[in-house]
Design a protein around this nucleic acid. Structure first.
Length: 423
RNA sequence: GGAGGAAUGGCAGAGUGGUCGAAUGCGGCAGUCUUGAAAACUGUUGAGGGUCACACCUCCGGGGGUUCGAAUCCCUCUUCCUCCGCCA
């Protein structure tokens, strides 16, 4: 969430910037600022009451020690009164603070100045593209048909044991998945990211830390008996490693990578665009996460983009990069680049990576700080990106690498697979 | 799952009702000394709120209670350790 102090000082500029999200934030921000003033006034009143009570307690102690028990007992009455007002004020303060938090949670991140205006994904700005769109063989198939033909992914079997959106990967299909995971992790660690294995279930504090809660509560699988959530992305556990931490300036850059399955309820999704691997409830992803000094976070973002580019280039998949417009930008992000691979058989672009800078938005919730040069604690910047999400990469490979008789394996993956074609 | 014990500042570790945001040691930072470094010595060193700055307030695993007053007493939750059981 945004910092109150920044909100107070730059109200007008923030309202204007949030306009890019097609959001009129004025009433919200004004309500927040009013409530914050009320909060501080109440806090001051409470503090003064407590200061008075503390003073009296000390006096009572001294009086008892001096043997003046009756004087001490007289003061107790006064103390009781203060206690009463203190209690009332404390309750009021809690109420106000909770209300204030609720409002603050409703304010999305401020879009970066480079974020274009726009309403939907139609308005995203293409900033780069690379790779030739291959000419496919006659009777080219979409990946779900290929998967069936070569018996490498079984969607029906997944329906039987769990439900729609939980595919079963078989034989070479499973091996190709594992190859991709290893290949991505190797690329990421070679680029300086430390590999981590993290829990796949998180508590609600972690959900709040990275901003999935309370905003996207319905998107996560919730294990109610234990009050845990299945992670929708490795971003949640990995970024939360730094919750309530104060890192040292010299710890930067902090670069982690992790493979995890991701679980998403995807409530409300349906139709042709969710066929096959296009949209799943469980999928695999290798994530990269960075914690950076505010002065260098955009440099880091560019480095992450360059890194993902490099991986897609090696896989020889045609892709483009989009800068998300205000209307499509995620709630917690300041700037996001989406990577899309062209799925030739479906004749459409598939999102395979999303690389974002959250600036201090997550850090503020996480209380992730670092000691700056002056020994002061400052919020760090957090970033993350997919490097990469598996299913759509797999879809892209199956479709773009199909031949008359089978599917060729991209050269870089052959050593990981142990075979060079399927079929 | 059963029985005990524990949770204090970056770390170790004292503190069992007031003078405790908290001894001491280590670590960190600054300085003295030194050609430089080490050692030694001196000072400094938790977080948040609040203020122009002070004052002041809150925090000793989380929550609740007793008391004029709680790190210290009581209840509860969580986590960790030891022993027993079970187990990939």
């Amino acid at each position: 969430m945004l910092q109150l102090q920044v909100l107070r000082e730059q109200k007008e500029a923030i309202i204007k910037a949030l306009g890019k999200r097609n959001l009129d934030a004025k009433p919200l921000l004004e309500a927040i600022i009013d409530l914050d003033e009320k909060r501080r006034a109440t806090q001051t009143e409470l503090d003064n009451t407590l200061a008075e009570a503390n003073k009296i307690s000390k006096e009572i102690g001294n009086l008892f020690k001096a043997g003046k028990a009756s004087d001490a007992n007289a003061l107790k009455t006064k103390s009781a009164g203060l206690k009463e007002t203190g209690k009332t004020l404390g309750e009021a303060l809690n109420r106000i603070a909770a209300e204030l938090d609720e409002l603050l949670y409703q304010v999305p991140n401020i879009p970066h100045e480079s974020v274009p205006k726009g309403n939907s994904d139609e308005d995203n700005e293409e900033i780069y593209s690379e790779g030739e769109i291959p000419k496919l063989v006659e009777n080219a198939m979409p990946h779900w048909e290929l998967a069936k033909r070569f018996d490498i992914i079984d969607f029906e079997l997944g329906v039987k044991i769990t439900g729609a959106g939980f595919p079963v990967y078989k034989g070479k299909g499973a091996r190709l998945q594992r190859a991709l995971i290893s290949y991505f992790l190797d690329k990421n660690t070679a680029a300086g990211y430390t590999e981590m294995q993290v829990p796949h279930l998180v508590n609600d504090a972690s959900g709040y830390g990275t901003g999935q809660l309370p905003d996207k509560e319905g998107q996560m699988y919730h294990v109610q008996a234990d009050e845990l959530y299945l992670i929708p992305t490795a971003e949640v556990p990995v970024t939360n490693l730094f919750r309530d931490e104060i890192v040292k300036n010299e710890d930067f850059p902090i670069k982690y990578t992790a493979y995890t399955p991701c679980f998403r309820r995807e409530a409300g999704s349906y139709g042709a665009h969710v066929r096959g691997l296009n949209r799943l409830h469980q999928f695999d992803k290798v994530e990269i996460v960075r914690v950076e000094h505010p002065d260098r976070s955009y440099e880091a973002l560019e480095a992450m983009v360059a890194h993902v580019k490099e991986v897609l280039r090696e896989l020889k998949l045609p892709f483009r990069i989009l800068r998300l417009c205000g209307g499509d930008l995620g709630f917690t992000a300041a700037l996001t680049y989406d990577f899309e691979v062209f799925s030739t058989a479906q004749n459409r672009w598939l999102e395979v990576s999303s690389v974002s800078n959250f600036e201090t938005y997550q850090a503020n919730r996480l209380k992730l700080r670092f000691k700056d040069g002056n020994g002061k604690n400052q919020l760090a910047h957090t970033l993350n990106g997919s490097a990469l999400a598996l299913p759509r990469i797999l879809a892209g490979i199956l479709e773009n690498y199909q031949t008359k008789n089978g599917i060729q394996i991209p050269e870089v993956l052959v050593p990981y697979c142990g075979f060079d074609s399927i079929g």
